[in-house]
Design a binder for these strands. Sequence first.
DNA 1: CTGTTAGCGCCTTCAA
DNA 2: TTGAAGGCGCTAACAG
Lengths: 342, 342
Amino acid sequence: MGKTIRDVATLAGVSTATVSRALAQGTKGVAEGTRTRVLKAAESLEYRTNFIARSLKTKSTMTVAFIVPELANNFFMDVAEGMGEKLITDGYTMLLASSGNSTEVEKRRITMLADRGVDGMVVIPAGSRGDHLQAIADRGVPVVLVDRLAEGAHVDAIASDNEKGAFDLTRALLDDGYRRIAFVGGDITVSTARERLSGFARALAEAGIVPEPEWICLGGMEVQDGYRRMKTVLESPNPPEAMVAVNLLVHLGMERYLLGTRVQAVIAGFDTSEYTPFLPACRYIAVQNAVEMGRSACAKIIEGITEKKSGSFPQETYGGRVTRLPVTIIRHEEEKNGTKSL
Amino acid sequence: MGKTIRDVATLAGVSTATVSRALAQGTKGVAEGTRTRVLKAAESLEYRTNFIARSLKTKSTMTVAFIVPELANNFFMDVAEGMGEKLITDGYTMLLASSGNSTEVEKRRITMLADRGVDGMVVIPAGSRGDHLQAIADRGVPVVLVDRLAEGAHVDAIASDNEKGAFDLTRALLDDGYRRIAFVGGDITVSTARERLSGFARALAEAGIVPEPEWICLGGMEVQDGYRRMKTVLESPNPPEAMVAVNLLVHLGMERYLLGTRVQAVIAGFDTSEYTPFLPACRYIAVQNAVEMGRSACAKIIEGITEKKSGSFPQETYGGRVTRLPVTIIRHEEEKNGTKSL
DNA sequence: CTGTTAGCGCCTTCAA
DNA sequence: TTGAAGGCGCTAACAG
């Protein structure tokens, strides 16, 4: 059995209260001499403070949960790295959990996590509804959304400027002379998909272009969705010559479809990866700063936790402010050439 | 403030002990009538059991930590998904943490996690040494390694049969008539790299082939390492015509290099991803079953935790048994065609 | 089957 | 500056 604060106390010849103070508060309210004596005793006993016991008393676990739709997704994990690093700096531990793209699972996870006493939760919602997230917030656990928004959750959020990103992407294609442009993929229950579609539509509208109805080919955010939609859109009576992909996975599926045909097409999409230089049809990419999103989310949640601890929380409850991070458009060639720098 | 077991007790008109029994053990040792009464009371109060308090008493957090070298790595995350799903089924919560490819950070994380009271730890070691892992195991926390082994950690492990995988991969190239084959990339401090090199060497030896020294081009496991090594090996006086890549990232870097040249080469490597169909030089792939590795690791760690709880642990302490999972070789064409199934 | 009684290991007023 | 004492919320004997 591990040593307790009591063992340290007896060895150091002081009370448990003193040990607690010397270990937790540092030099605060403890004579320098006693403090070093306690520290030495703790060291020689290989004493480790029991965080469970501390948490029971302090009501704080110094833990933040991050719930993502899926783990095997580089974009989400980049956000996670950004968050994790900053959290650790501030003495927090990050608890990463997957909702498996299901709002139901997400709901179970967050209640479980709340019961486990996490100090705060950052979540990339699986679906469009966020009532369960609001419920958690109402229970007094600070919640922050990242990347996607959710209906019914009046909490702060960090997201990319998806509308402008899609607008710029479409504009770039228009500037290259393309007029017949499609929008492929996108689960309309997901806020990012809606925002991107909206930016796409605005760019066309401003250019005075009316797209064929078949060119708005929504549905799904995964690789196979991109594959299927691409097939549909290309087999339509009046196929487009260029397209905007709702995200990287869909983009990938589209390229996969192209791989099996002789069709020439140009794609503009969101997000890069080590692999994008190999995608033949890719022309433009809208790059989100995933790591920065993670950092911002971390800052926000820590802010929320701190406010809550200091009691100045109630008036903040009606949060719902969303911070938008800029998106950068790059030409695919730049990236291919970037290869030289390896 | 959240309701406590006491509130439920008073409302239901029973003692806290009874509430505890009704809630935790289910129907065990509690009259059906009382049980439903307690449940109803708990429900109407929106009572949530406080896991912190429970853990303090039971010495169990029902939590397993999984430490990986990096989060933004699909292979690791596939392992994580495999683990997570099974863990949840058994009532555990998974705590995912990154060591940032540093043994030092890994050490800090695991001690922190141990202090936080995790019931067990599954780790993909960042480096070759595992003394710190052994230290944790000695503190009584079950530890299981996955994917990679570590010197000095006498704990159970789950890994792929890397030696055979590399052997088969090399054999496949030999069967295709290639004789001038190189081995590219690989940090020799990482067990998987060593094992794969060893399988490669055996295949050549059995075929009576003596490779040029420059064809064994070790160093690194990342994209840029593959890029650099590929350059080196191709610029050598007597370049090879085919190569085995130590892992997917290195493989990727190699293809990136090829992209900028007119060199024809054939590559065989480990692991697939949604992107591998786009890699032009890729001929063979050794597929590891990441999800299954996760499941096995999960089974092992739960076994360890259970044994420990039931006290039958001591004699198991000198674990160190490694379970090898098979690796499947596939032709790249099969994968490209698999595209049809999307 | 149920209630009483002790803590788990730590923190935190309140006095000294 | 330090110590004594009383819990945090829950579980686990041990009686009844």
